[in-house]
Design a protein around this nucleic acid. Structure first.
Lengths: 211, 211
DNA sequence: TTATTTATACCTGTTTTCAGGTATTTTTGC
DNA sequence: GCAAAAATACCTGAAAACAGGTATAAATAA
């Protein structure tokens, strides 16, 4: 099974973490650490020249935020598996990282065996979470799920059309309704979600998975 | 380890699937099937009277869509672990289910051993995926990640404020800018994302994890 | 240092949205 | 069958957004 060891890079602004991870992973034969960086910019220029199979990425960085960096990495090098390595234990943060192309999410309290196992799983093309992250993901906050207004069929329909950039006259024509009717539905949507305008409406609807 | 077997319910509009799952799970001592339903409505009324530890939920249903049903289930009974069981293999679909409170996602080509393992993992309070689902999750579509316009610091700032429901005058005051300047940024945002109005802008920005 | 991008600001006119209502006809649930 | 909810439609006036420009200072990259 020893063809070529997988290349691994680490981005973390704490040198101590960098040191620790290196020590943990040096005696793993199947993994070769090819670079350690304390800034996103430095890593990106490295990535342009070198192949990286796995990236361990801290989310909080001095120059850029990890979520955007993750997306940039995947856009430049889609085959690089990005594993977020973070203290952030909010469910929404984990979801955002995954949405932006991360192959996994590891909490920093991870054990060394678990770390290696997760890297292996990522290398084999699967999403992976540390135990702690799995537990967080299984516990959706009730507030996220409750307090979601109940929409009628028509309201959902119109919500989607609004989100697609359609204006009231557009929607009225498409659904063969009076523009005044569409306005009423729009107003009810804004009222039900307790927001001020469509911008906030679309944001909340999108975050709650209604679009 | 045999205190009380976990209660499990199944919602799927194909009776054959219902039969098959029942057969697969009857000889598992730690799991007790307490109900099988072919419609979301029927299950919801059952859930009001009975405790359900795990729900195997098909996404495509005649009366409601599984994503919304999942949210309703979690709102009514937060301790019920919902495992999506589906043929849908789109990454976005999986993410939506998770965002709406699902504890896991299983593709229907799952093996019986894997199914039991996933149910056990869900019962122990962790998110879980079938092998196939893990692979899909690890492969973000490139189109999702590329083609994202590059925004300046100011534009990001204003994008967030717009998403929060702030109007141009609001934003101008908050950032000590001329409303006309804010209008320009707003216009540039709409142009960069190639959309018609803020509604579409916020939708796309939200889906790309920029909010 | 020069060229480009970014951030700033302005102008005009049209369209759309939003706030504040009222009101009738269908559905749907009990 | 009756009550409630949903879908329909209307009205007015103010506020905001959008389309279509132009233009200049400051910062940044080549």
């Amino acid at each position: 099974m020893l063809i070529n060891p997988a290349t691994l890079a680490i981005v973390d602004d704490h040198p101590i973490v960098l040191e620790g991870l290196q020590k943990l992973l040096t005696n793993v034969k199947s993994i070769q650490i090819t670079g350690c960086f304390t800034s996103g910019l430095a890593f990106m220029s490295f990535l342009k020249e070198n192949k990286v199979d796995v990236l361990l990425l801290d989310i909080t960085l001095p120059d850029a935020n990890g979520i955007e960096l993750c997306r940039e990495v995947k856009a430049l090098s889609p085959d690089t598996h990005v594993l977020a390595l973070s203290n952030h234990s909010e469910r929404s943060m984990i979801l955002q990282m995954i949405q932006n192309g991360a192959t996994g999410y590891l909490l920093k309290n991870i054990s060394s065996e678990e770390l290696v196992a997760c890297i292996q799983e990522a290398l084999s093309g699967m999403i992976t979470f540390s135990k702690g992250a799995k537990e967080i993901m299984a516990r959706p906050s009730i507030s996220e799920l409750k307090g979601i207004p109940q929409l009628t069929k028509r309201e959902k329909e119109i919500l989607h059309l609004i989100a697609d950039g359609k204006t009231t006259p557009d929607i009225a024509q498409q659904l063969n309704l009076s523009p005044l009717t569409v306005e009423t539905h729009r107003k009810n949507l804004i009222q039900k979600f307790q927001v001020r305008n469509v911008a906030a409406l679309i944001k909340i609807a999108s975050q709650q998975g209604l679009l």
